[in-house]
Design a protein around this nucleic acid. Structure first.
Length: 318
DNA sequence: GTCCAGGTCGCGC
DNA sequence: GCGCGACATGGA
């Protein structure tokens, strides 16, 4: 290991209930570069390029104490880490794990429903997100009209082609900056990263972020109503109804559901004995959850996934 | 080879 | 406001 690499540890103190592993592994994002999930160490690693240009390696883990939960960020870096850089890293990780989001009302609703829903108030429901909105939009675009394997491949090519390296690691790279994509031509970009027709959307998005035509702060403004926010999301090329609902979830608004193939198949299976249903009927199932629809849906989807995994392992161990 | 994926766009009506 | 074909790419 390079001796010039320094290590700085930073601790965060989430409000309980908080469950680090459930949050890290809450949906597919943990499996997309530049995230690396170390199963044994229960650690999320990723290269991060700070706004000042410094590239660092973050190893994010937890003490897993329910009473006094703590997130530990091990930062590997060159030279000294300035206070500003420390603060930026803390803010990014708080953002990823949604430490500033309040789930009390949702948990109260779950406890009120009783039964298996009470499990959620032990700290489930936080869905991992990326440090930047740009990363979350690119990734969401890359989940449309493609299977999960395709999403992983596209993001992998994207990160490996344009992400910055940390000199202490030969392989890992940061998520590309909008500037890095904006300064390459669409033609070159489309040859380096095979995203199909999505290439033009991602290239345009990068240009809009780079020239500040798109301001991420607008999307995080608590004052903006959810319908207005959805309208803004739909203005982005490549974002339709499904992607807007996904992005609303990532932005902390849970009242829209992504009516895609997964949602339709799931609701049909769970509530309509596998028969086809209209989106309207399917959506009606979650109406009672009000502003928490996405979290309720996601929990049930996760439940079914776990049951299927159990069945699989029990049938192979016979 | 054919079909289609955690859809979206742009067109014509 | 709705229906419908086109869209890149690779895996099933």
């Amino acid at each position: 290991m390079d001796e010039r690499i320094k290590t700085t540890n930073i601790a965060l103190h989430p409000e309980p209930p908080f469950n680090f592993e459930f949050t890290a592994y809450s949906h597919g994002w943990v499996l997309l570069l530049p995230n690396h999930w170390d199963k044994e160490a229960k650690t999320l690693r990723r290269i991060e390029r700070l706004s000042g240009g410094k590239v660092v390696l973050l190893s994010i883990s937890s003490n897993t104490s329910p009473e006094n939960p703590r997130i530990i960020i091990e930062v590997r870096h060159h030279e000294t880490l300035s206070k500003m850089e420390r603060n930026e890293i803390m803010a990014s990780v708080r953002h990823m794990f949604r430490l500033d989001e309040d789930f009390q009302k949702f948990y109260a609703l779950c406890d009120q429903r009783g039964d298996r829903w009470t499990k959620l108030s032990q700290g489930l429901g936080r869905l991992l997100r990326s440090p930047s909105l740009f990363e979350d939009i690119v990734k969401t675009i890359c989940t449309t009209n493609i299977q999960w394997g395709g999403t992983k491949r596209m993001i992998e090519e994207f990160v490996n082609a344009y992400g910055e390296k940390f000199s202490g690691d030969p392989v890992m790279r940061a998520f590309p900056t909008p500037e890095a994509i904006a300064k390459t031509t669409l033609n070159t970009f489309s040859k380096k990263v095979r995203m199909g027709y999505r290439t033009a959307y991602v290239h345009l998005l990068a240009k809009q972020f780079a020239n500040e035509e798109m301001n991420p702060n607008v999307f995080f403004d608590p004052e903006i109503s959810t319908p207005d926010l959805k309208k803004k999301l739909l203005e982005i090329k490549g974002i339709g109804n499904y992607a807007a609902a996904t992005l609303l979830m990532l932005l902390g608004r849970y009242n829209e559901l992504p009516t895609d193939t997964v949602f339709r198949e799931f609701v049909s299976k769970k509530y309509f004995k596998g028969k086809k249903v209209s989106d309207k009927k399917a959506l009606a199932i979650y109406k009672k959850w009000g502003q928490w629809k996405y979290l309720a849906y996601w929990y049930e989807l996760w439940e079914m996934y776990n049951e299927q995994q159990k069945e699989k392992s029990s049938s192979t161990h016979k």
